[in-house]
């Protein structure tokens, strides 16, 4: 076991897959000579050179599309496209949604689009409205896309390796504030399959469902709740589309209560979909309506106090848990 930062775990996943498959390459803004805006691709350019680690101009739509076309050729090329952040990937949504997500369906299965779009998502710290958006719900809305979002170094590595090997376009969303977070990563190879969630903490009274940065918020809340004799289970779906419905429903059947925590906006979010599924599939097992804690329904302000107010916090989660427990 090694202790790695998330950025190192992602780096290892990319390097291992590049070693395994010469068709895997990575491109994006500053990924090569600068070693990545957030140093995720540290050392890769030195190791693999210009052909496989490619600095692009600041043209998200263009290089996303070039990646999609390369993947579609069906001759063993598997691009990893780094988006400096998902805020900038918005420029490439046409390529991702109108092209990558539909090529296979429209061609009645002739094309595969084995491509990964990855980069940091969600608010960081005082970056203001255009740089602080959690966009997983927009991506998860689209049939044809897979959406994965890891919360630990272990998960990040195993999930990304599966994403790279998958024959579908995968949206892989990381977090700027988590790149330095450390955790255990096994030395040998392992994969975490697409569509498999994970219980991050076992509990019996309530299921808190959270992903990426919000897992830590949920775990903090769970630790506090334990002091008050409330046993919270923390469930990380890890893949948001397809959802690990089985795991979610099994947990809720056990706890009979659920709180969903996401830093995205509340309207039509992934959390809304999860709440809907719990309500329809596990209705008879619920002792309270599912609660949802979201980022405030506003563009993110810059001022530190307002930003703090806008974000989900352990306190807000604890309050929601108490509401579903009628305490």
């Amino acid at each position: 076991m090694a202790i790695l930062q998330i950025r190192e775990a992602i780096n290892q996943a990319i390097a291992e897959e590049m070693d395994r498959d010469p068709g895997v390459f990575i491109m994006g803004e500053e990924v090569a000579q600068y070693n990545g805006a957030y140093k995720v691709t540290q050392g890769l350019w030195k190791k693999y050179g210009d052909k496989r680690v490619i600095d692009t101009p600041i043209t998200e739509a263009g290089f996303a599309g070039i990646g999609i076309g390369a993947a579609m050729a069906g001759i063993g090329v598997r691009p990893i496209v780094e988006m400096m952040t998902w805020n900038f990937a918005i420029l490439a949504f046409d390529q991702i949604i109108n092209h990558a997500a539909k090529a296979r369906y429209m061609s009645a299965g002739q094309f595969k689009v084995p491509i990964v779009f990855r980069g940091p998502n969600g608010p960081a710290h005082m970056l203001g409205a255009q740089h602080s958006q959690a966009l997983e719900s927009m991506m998860a809305h689209v049939p044809g896309l897979i959406v994965m979002t890891p919360s630990t170094p272990y998960d990040a590595k195993g999930m990304l390796k599966s994403a790279i090997r998958d024959d579908n376009p995968v949206i892989f969303m990381e977090s700027e504030l988590m790149y330095g977070q450390k955790g255990e990563v096994p030395d040998g190879e392992y994969l975490i399959p697409v569509g498999k969630g994970d219980i991050k903490r076992e509990g019996t009274d309530v299921t808190i469902i959270a992903w990426t940065k919000m897992v830590a918020v949920a775990l903090k809340a769970a630790a506090e709740l334990e002091k008050e004799g409330i046993s919270a289970e923390v469930l990380d779906p890890r893949t948001l589309r397809p959802l690990d419905e089985e795991l979610i429903i099994a947990s809720v059947k056990k706890t009979n209560r659920a709180v969903i925590v996401e830093d995205s906006w509340p309207f039509a979010s992934v959390g809304t979909e999860i709440a809907h599924r719990i309500h329809t599939i596990a209705f008879d097992h619920l002792d309270a309506p599912v609660e949802k804690i979201n980022g405030a329904d506003v563009p993110m302000p810059y001022a530190e106090n307002l930003e703090h107010e806008a974000m989900p916090s352990p306190e807000k989660v604890i309050a929601a848990v108490k509401r579903v427990l009628y305490r």
Binding site: N87, L127, A129, Q130, H131, Y302, A303
Partner: peptide, 24 residues
Amino acid sequence: GIGGSMHFYDLSKGFMGGWGIVGG
């Protein structure tokens, strides 16, 4: 205080900002 470093605006002076997306 809502905008921050990247988002200065003053409509009264015709200063339209202050935008963070390259080419936006």
